[in-house]
Simulated assay, not measured.
Amino acid sequence: MERRGKRFNQIWLTEEQTPNMKLSLRVNRVLVNKKSDYQEILLVETAEYGRMLVLDGAIQIGEREEFCYSEMMAHIPLCAHPDPKHVLIVGGGDGGVLREVLRHKNVEKAVLIDIDSDVIEAAKEYLPTLSCAMDDPRAEIRSEDALSYIRSVSECFDVAIVDSTDPVDFAAGLFESSFYEEVKKALKKDGIIIAQTESPFSDTKIMIEAYKNMKSVYPITSLCWGAMPTYPSGMWTYTIGSREVDPSTPRHTVPEGTKYYTRDIHKAAFVLPPFLKDLLHDK
């Protein structure tokens, strides 16, 4: 009998995305496997999506597909804002959203706050295509509790991007109305906040609650969506709030180098399928 060696000793990364659904990816190499003060950090090289960051068993970002998420989180609010100069990023220690934010030449300063310095250091060493903007002189990288920092500033930012992990443990509060209220105080009058708000299929309740909480704080609240292949269901939502700016209208030229975001994608992202409208109805 012929033994096919490549069939043996395989390593697979499996994320349990819901109690009834899993995603498995073949792992070529384990780069980081450690427990920080806040979470389990795993950074692997996969055959399908390249290097991938996994926190507490949940896939955060992969080299091949991250642009779908990073570009939407950054360019939707920055292209909608009249003149975004100061940007706050909560979470996002991998650096992908920061990279996209700093594609905008009019941005003068971007403050990235991720509570876990070990995530930032791992990204710097093993995810250079994502973390490449961390050395930009316009970037300020802080490893601390984001809420404490936000409470220390007032009307400082034009855009706030909440690039959080799933709403568990220390990240749970980032989906609540009280947090959105604190961010509102840190934003200028024409400021915009965008937050990732999970999948309408696998995390329906979380999405609805986040939208409802945002709507209770900001008079203009919208939901938009896009593709994200490695996240549960592949369909991902983003909730946006502001006091006076309509986020569905792009006002600026698309930055060079985008692979997902365009002006047409921006406008189309706010066109919700009927089932999604029904989920948000009266919320």
Rank of each mutant, 00 (worst) to 15 (best):
D278T: 10
V90I: 10
R151Q: 10
L102D: 03
P229D: 00
L55S: 10
L78A: 09
C68R: 10
L13H: 11
K185R: 08
F179D: 12
R64I: 15
N33T: 06
D163P: 00
T262A: 05
R29G: 13
E45Y: 04
P137W: 11
S177R: 14
I150N: 01
P82E: 07
E65R: 04
G191V: 11
I193T: 11
L279M: 13
R64L: 15
V271E: 00
M72I: 09
S233W: 14
V168H: 04
A58L: 14
Y260E: 09
E244M: 06
E209T: 12
G241E: 05
I89K: 00
W12K: 08
G241C: 02
V153M: 01
G191W: 10
S199K: 09
N28W: 04
V245F: 06
T253E: 03
T14W: 08
I89T: 02
K189Q: 13
V97P: 04
M1S: 15
V90T: 02
D190L: 07
I206M: 01
D166C: 11
V183F: 06
S117C: 12
S70T: 12
T129N: 04
M72Q: 08
S233Y: 14
A171F: 05
L23I: 15
R243S: 11
L130A: 09
S152E: 02
K205G: 06
K212W: 07
P219H: 12
R4V: 03
V97C: 01
H266E: 10
L280K: 07
L276T: 06
D136R: 01
V27N: 14
I161P: 04
L55E: 07
T258H: 06
D190W: 05
T165P: 04
S248M: 02
Y49G: 01
S248Q: 01
H104W: 12
S36M: 08
V44P: 11
V97N: 02
I194E: 06
R142N: 08
A210M: 10
V107T: 06
A186C: 09
R151F: 06
D169L: 08
V97Y: 02
E2G: 00
D135V: 03
G92Y: 01
T46N: 04
F179L: 11
T46M: 07
V107Y: 10
C68S: 15
C156V: 07
S199L: 13
S248L: 01
D94P: 02
I192S: 07
R263N: 14
L88A: 09
S148G: 09
F8S: 15
V30W: 03
A268S: 13
S248Y: 00
F175A: 13
P200L: 05
L272A: 12
R263E: 12
R142K: 15
E140K: 12
P200V: 04
D37C: 03
I265D: 09
L102Y: 06
L31K: 01
